[in-house]
Simulated scan of single mutants.
Amino acid sequence: MPPIRARLVRAKGRVVRALDRVVPAAATAVVHSSPDLDDSVVALLREAPADVPVTVLCRDPRAVARRADALGLPRPRAVPHQSARGWWAYLRSTVAVSTHGLHGCLPRPGRKSTVGLWHGELGKAIGAFAGEGPRHFDWVPVSSPLSRSLRSAEFVLDPALIHVVGSPRQRLLAPGPDRAAAPLPPGRHVVWVPTYRTSVTGAIRTDGDPEALRSELPLDDPRLDALLTRHDATLWFRPHPAADQALPPTGPRVRRATNADLADLGLTFYELLGRADCFVTDYSSVWVDFLLLDRPMVAFCPDLAAFRSGRGLAVEPHEAWFPGPVVTTAAALLDRLDAALADPRTGAEVREHRRAVLHTATADPVAAVWDRVRSEVGR
């Protein structure tokens, strides 16, 4: 973050904190995510308690309403988080639930508290490992003791505030009993989730080697189309929310999987992920959640050396931790993808070991978050 912007963020945080001391809390909660209405927030709103008034803080209330309609959610009360109404909703809330934190992510005074739904575990170096300042949350859900240790170090946070209950977004990997699966094209499905190399929103930065990725990206390669045709498969390519959302040239069996694209199908991203036969990524933490499905995955990392020496990764070596092959060329990716689609048990033993380490939660993560909110609101 540029120094001037960082100073402005800190100054705004101090103003909000001063106001937070004098504005009395009401028995309400606010929920915020970046991007608006992400999958963890969708999972929470599907089971929002009737006895706790909840306001969604967002960039675009109209877009939130459209997304809620497309996903079959009751329209939430949504206000712009940087508006006077958004500030007031935050200041009056007893609990603020957020993926990234609000208003500097500082401790709230008195009986007000925060829940931190960070959007992933064990991916890129973040927080203190990326030279950022501490983030304060009073209650953070994670999936394993290892994630608790890392989150504590990333946010400079007391590990006693971090709880191994799983993450709400993980609930969307399987449709609930009252939600029918949305129709998808027939056949099998591959989901590909690269992280950004150059961000265009939020903190503007470049990680890894964008040209190395572009030069090896096989989305319009006839060999990929032949492979997908042979396995009767569709490849869903999801640009990182911070990256340019335009697709590079693609073949006929490749489809884009942004939130807007999937909302047209009545799906969230994690609902699509739950129906994937194979998963491709690089350094995205989504692979940790995909482990719950026990299906093959491949890491495509043409710029591994550059990413490792620059941004860095949360757990190393990446080749040892990732529960599948890590490849650096398009040819190797196609070979490994072919093997994974041919035999879903490919790599099962490695996945079993990683799952035993990275998923030890036995709680219902959505219920755990709402239990925390209720307990704070009811105090």
Rank of each mutant, 00 (worst) to 15 (best):
W118P: 00
A243S: 12
R59Q: 05
A43M: 01
W287C: 02
V54L: 04
R62Q: 09
A18N: 04
D264K: 01
V52R: 01
A84M: 06
T206W: 13
G202H: 12
R59W: 07
R230V: 12
F137R: 08
L333C: 05
K12C: 15
R188A: 10
R311T: 14
D232R: 15
S284I: 05
A332Y: 12
L44S: 05
L341K: 15
P134F: 02
D225A: 07
P159F: 01
R311D: 07
R151V: 14
T55A: 06
T268D: 01
N259G: 14
V193S: 11
P325I: 08
A246E: 15
A174L: 14
S152V: 10
R372D: 15
P239K: 04
V97I: 09
L157T: 09
E216V: 09
G274A: 10
S285F: 07
P317R: 07
V165L: 14
R92P: 11
V373C: 09
K112P: 04
S113E: 08
L44Y: 04
L161W: 10
V298P: 00
L57A: 07
A246H: 08
A128M: 11
R66P: 06
R351Q: 07
R275I: 12
K124H: 10
A27I: 03
A257Y: 02
A260W: 00
R17M: 08
P177D: 13
V377R: 00
R17D: 10
V373M: 02
E121A: 09
I204H: 06
V200I: 10
Y196V: 05
S309R: 14
D38E: 14
G131M: 11
V373I: 12
L235T: 05
L334Q: 11
D36I: 00
L273K: 12
A153C: 09
P177E: 15
L91R: 14
H103R: 09
S33C: 13
Q245I: 03
A233E: 13
A368M: 12
L117E: 05
C301F: 02
R275W: 05
L292H: 12
A340F: 10
T28F: 03
G166F: 09
L172P: 07
L172K: 09
A182R: 06
L272F: 01
R17K: 07
T329Q: 15
S167T: 09
Y270S: 04
V79N: 08
G120W: 11
G187N: 04
D51K: 13
G187M: 15
S152H: 06
Y90Q: 02
A340W: 03
A314R: 11
R256M: 14
R77T: 15
R336H: 15
V298H: 04
Y270K: 01
R275A: 05
A18V: 08
R67W: 02
V9Y: 14
T94Q: 12
P185V: 13
A242I: 11
T281N: 03
A260G: 01
A356I: 10
E376H: 09
R179M: 00
P24Q: 08
L117N: 07
P74V: 01
S34L: 15
S144F: 06
T328Q: 07
V326L: 03
F300H: 01
P76Q: 03
E132L: 14
A356N: 08
R10Y: 11
R255C: 03
S113Y: 10
A263N: 10
R151K: 11
E47L: 15
P296F: 07
R223D: 14
K112L: 12
D303V: 13
V357M: 04
R311P: 06
R85A: 06
S113R: 14
R7W: 03
